[in-house]
């Protein structure tokens, strides 16, 4: 750890503390995530392993860079590039312009498209995990749930994604799922950016489904073939006046091409959901104003 000067504390997570720091050699500003690796029961934390596995050696403009891993006594220091803020803070602490919003949307989808092209799932896309650099570049962060897509017929856990951003197939207990889980979360994030409040705010798994179907109407075998054979499928009764996501967003005065983008990401059936690449092809990104990345006005 002599290679780094450790500064003040930035925050505390589930399994460690994050400090501000500087690389002695060149003054690079870093965030040091110090984790207790020596868990007396199960050794080095599973999530820490995942994060190192997925991020080590990866360089992409929209993925947070893991600069180094340094052991220390019973623990580990994960050295990340220091980021200025995150999308949650930008969204609720400042007023990003339309062009900046478009930039964030493009950068989020670029990051996901890169991961998906490498058969990797993030599995915890939410505003707080979308970090923003001092230059205003959005980068996917927190890879504690990320993994490679399992082979066919190999089960993956349905216990991932923060509840409000969790797609219906996970809530129905699907164990074979794909890139659609990240794009659903991305759709929820973008809707939240437009609405300035989370789109579906459930309190339990069941309530989350209810909140989604209140707006979309419940799925059936025509709209989503195979839905009724999912492990935790429950039939929801039809509500009288489904609003649709489109009308909800239109009522909030979002630009029509922005609404198209979000609606494409929020299809209930994961098979007909837009991929990150599809979404990047939407007219939203070629219409004016052009997407921009500007330094955030407030820092951590």
């Amino acid at each position: 750890m002599q290679a780094y000067d450790v500064g003040g504390e930035l925050g505390k997570g589930q399994w460690g503390t994050v400090f501000r720091g500087k690389r002695v050699r060149d003054g690079l500003r870093v965030a040091i995530k110090r984790v207790r690796a020596g868990d007396p029961v199960e050794g080095v934390n599973f999530q820490v392993l995942r994060e190192i596995k997925m991020l080590k050696g990866v360089k992409h403009e929209n993925i947070v860079e893991l600069v180094d891993v340094v052991p220390q006594e019973e623990g580990l220091n994960m050295i990340f590039e220091l980021m200025a803020t995150d999308l949650e803070k930008v969204l609720y602490g400042t007023t990003p312009t339309e062009a900046e919003i478009k930039g964030y949307a493009a950068m989020l989808l670029e990051g996901l498209a890169f991961m998906h092209a490498h058969f990797a799932l993030h599995r915890d896309i939410k505003p707080a995990n979308l970090l923003i650099s001092f230059e205003g570049i959005l980068k996917l962060g927190d890879f504690g749930y990320a993994r490679y897509l399992a082979d066919e017929n190999c089960h993956m856990s349905d216990q991932c994604c923060t509840l409000w951003y969790r797609p219906p197939e996970l809530l129905f207990g699907a164990s074979e799922y794909g890139f659609g889980i990240d794009t659903w979360s991305a759709g929820c994030v973008l809707a939240e950016v437009g609405l300035k409040h989370p789109l579906f705010r459930g309190e339990t798994d069941l309530d989350q489904l209810a909140k989604i179907f209140q707006i979309t109407g419940p799925p059936d075998e025509t709209a989503w073939p195979g839905v009724s054979s999912l492990r935790k499928y429950i039939r929801f009764s039809k509500n009288d006046n489904p609003l649709t996501v489109r009308t909800l967003l239109n009522n909030a005065r979002l630009a029509p091409d922005f609404v198209d983008l979000i609606v494409g990401l929020l299809s209930l059936d994961p098979k007909s959901r837009d991929s990150a690449v599809d979404a990047l092809d939407r007219p939203f990104f070629t219409a004016l104003p052009r997407p921009v990345a500007r330094p955030p006005r407030k820092h951590l």
């Binding site: 690796a37 050794g43 080590k56 052991p71």
Partner: peptide, 18 residues
């Protein structure tokens, strides 16, 4: 012994486990 060996292993293989 295994827990300690895991830490030495991680360090030795330089966290290249993918």
């Amino acid at each position: 012994a295994v827990l300690e060996a895991e830490r030495v292993l991680l360090y030795s293989i330089n966290y290249d486990f993918d």
